[in-house]
């Protein structure tokens, strides 16, 4: 089958999946729905379940697109905002914004994503400058730097927890990730960042393809590599910051979704980016719906659930690498 046909089929399948899962997620929950809806049911449906579903889709999409960007940047399919420590950096920034008790606003934007962006950018810049010893970003250096930077920022967040123990539940939320606080306000925070960053990344799809050939080759084909890489770091940080500032640090979506999409339609970013965004959204929506109903009436933090799936998946990819498989996708 031609790649283009496969791509169209995949998009159609993903859109259908999102629609069906969305309907299921709307109807599932402690309050049963009956038609016609009374005002209480309508409130549950439109002010709780619907924004939560949209938020899960958007955060999943943002994380998957950020994952694609990082994987292109490091030329490595193991790169992911969570593994690289970017999410921990963003979570730390968001925590500071929340606990300094401010409702600071810059140009009508809430301070939380801005602080999260600062943390994400700092973490990514650190890992990126450490993780590329020599000419090629080395796998070991990237992973080790990611672990160190992630641990550092998590420790900083824990330190805040230590000083503000009365806010325990909220901090745990940042660290584990979840959608329990999802309302329309959160949807409005994420949407412009996700939309802008996604369109911008998509417009750079061809450049991202060149980068996969290696920095030297990309340069020879006319790409100003250093400048381009800085733009990618910024864009990915915006996406992670937007996602983390509304849902905390949710791991591995950014690795799993692009990996599956590449297996199906190949590495071309022009189709990889939109398909991964949809796949990431669907993945996180499924995970969040499961998190709501698995241990009903108790709700699992969705970050715990994605790490349950993502951890073994990461090990599986690592074992492929150990066997020296060079043809990833």
């Amino acid at each position: 089958m031609k790649t283009k046909t496969k791509y169209r089929l995949l998009l159609a399948g993903l859109i259908m999946g999102v629609g069906l899962t969305g309907l299921a997620a709307l109807s599932l929950g402690p309050v049963p729905l009956s038609f016609p809806l009374d005002s209480f049911q309508a409130k549950i449906l439109f002010d709780l379940r619907l924004p939560r579903i949209l938020l899960a889709l958007m955060v999943g999409a943002a994380l998957a697109v950020a994952g694609v960007l990082f994987q292109g940047l490091f030329r490595n399919p193991l790169a992911d905002p969570y593994v690289l420590g970017t999410s921990s950096g963003a979570a730390f920034g968001a925590t500071i914004a929340v606990f300094s008790g401010m409702n600071l606003r810059f140009f009508g934007l809430s301070a939380r994503p801005l602080f999260a962006f600062g943390g994400a950018l700092l973490a990514t810049a650190l890992v990126y400058s450490l993780g590329r010893s020599g000419r090629r970003p080395a796998l070991t250096m990237m992973l080790l730097a990611g672990i160190a930077v992630g641990a550092f920022f998590s420790a900083m967040t824990s330190l805040l927890l230590f000083f503000r123990q009365q806010e325990l539940a909220k901090i745990m939320f940042w660290m584990m990730g979840g959608f329990a606080y999802a309302r329309w306000a959160e949807v409005r925070i994420v949407l412009p960042y996700l939309g802008g960053a996604f369109l911008y990344s998509w417009s750079l799809a061809r450049q991202l393809n060149l980068l996969l050939l290696g920095e030297e080759k990309a340069h020879q084909l006319g790409l100003a590599v250093g400048d381009f890489q800085r733009r990618i770091v910024m864009t990915a940080s915006v996406l992670v910051a937007a996602a983390v500032s509304v849902s905390g640090a949710i791991g591995f979506v950014g690795m799993v979704a692009p990996h599956i999409v590449r297996l199906l339609i190949g590495p071309d970013h022009r189709s990889l980016l939109p398909a991964s965004a949809l796949a990431g959204g669907l993945l996180l929506l499924v995970a969040d719906t499961l998190a709501r109903i698995l241990l009903y009436p108790v709700e699992l933090p969705v970050g715990v659930l994605t790490s349950f799936i993502g951890g073994p998946f990461f090990l599986y990819l690592l074992s492929l690498l150990q066997k020296g498989r060079s043809d990833w996708y």
């Binding site: 061809r206 060149l210 996969l212 050939l213 290696g214 084909l221 006319g222 071309d268 060079s326 996708y329």
Partner: peptide, 20 residues
């Protein structure tokens, strides 16, 4: 020397020469 771990087709790689 040149290698990439990403599975582009040959046609895609040659087409990248048209990037500029």
């Amino acid at each position: 020397q040149w290698e990439t771990p990403f599975a582009f087709t040959v046609r895609e790689v040659v087409m990248m020469g048209r990037f500029p």
